[in-house]
């Protein structure tokens, strides 16, 4: 290891996806009428892939002041909802990345805090993206080990730092 502090000093950046993939809801006939109250008109919706991706995209990488979306650690295609099961796949920036576990944990913690308890989480790493993928995956999907990790103050402190930006949901204009 030549640079112990940094696992990938100059990662590739990706142009963030457009603000939202969500197509405008059914166009409204009297749409340009600005007197109408938008919020109460919204139809009932279910939690979908876009909504979950929005929860995750703006988490800050533990190493760089960049979001997981910008670093392509996670993309919308890597989120799937099947009934009450949520599958999330992520891709560490390099196969030796020692932060993979922290990134994964940040994702898990964010989802535990943000999704109704009826959902079951299923976290995975992109195939071939990491040298100890199996080990990391095992840790992340083991409920008890996750709750044990969440008891470690120092670890949670860095996770909370990563999550501090998560509320932006892909919007970069502060």
């Amino acid at each position: 290891m030549e640079q112990p502090q940094s696992f990938n000093a100059n990662p590739r950046l990706f142009t963030p996806a457009s603000d939202s993939y969500r197509k405008k809801q059914k166009s409204r006939l009297w749409a340009l009428d600005d007197h109408s109250d938008e919020s109460d008109d919204e139809e009932d919706t279910v939690i979908d892939e876009q909504e979950i991706f929005d929860l995750l995209r703006s988490i800050t990488d533990p190493e760089h002041p960049r979001t997981l979306e910008e670093l392509n650690v996670i993309s919308r295609k890597q989120v799937r909802v099947r009934g009450n099961i949520v599958d999330v796949e992520f891709t560490p920036t390099n196969p030796g990345c020692g932060m993979a576990h922290v990134i994964g944990l940040a994702i898990v913690v964010r989802l535990i805090r943000s999704l109704p308890p009826r959902f079951k989480l299923n976290i995975s790493l992109t195939q071939g993206s990491h040298q100890s993928a199996a080990q990391v995956m095992k840790q992340l999907n083991d409920k008890e080990r996750v709750s044990a990790a969440m008891e470690v103050d120092a670890l949670m402190e860095s996770i909370n730092t990563c999550l501090a930006t998560a509320g932006r949901r892909g919007s970069y204009s502060e």
């Binding site: 919204e42 919706t45 943000s114 109704p116 999550l163 509320g167």
Partner: peptide, 25 residues
């Protein structure tokens, strides 16, 4: 708030997530 995370309206869910997160932090 865990119960509110399942609100039928997306706008409410978003606020619920943000609020719950503030309390966690």
């Amino acid at each position: 708030l865990a119960r509110v995370l399942d609100d039928p309206k997306r706008a409410v869910r978003k606020e619920a997530v943000d609020t719950r997160s503030s309390w966690y932090m």
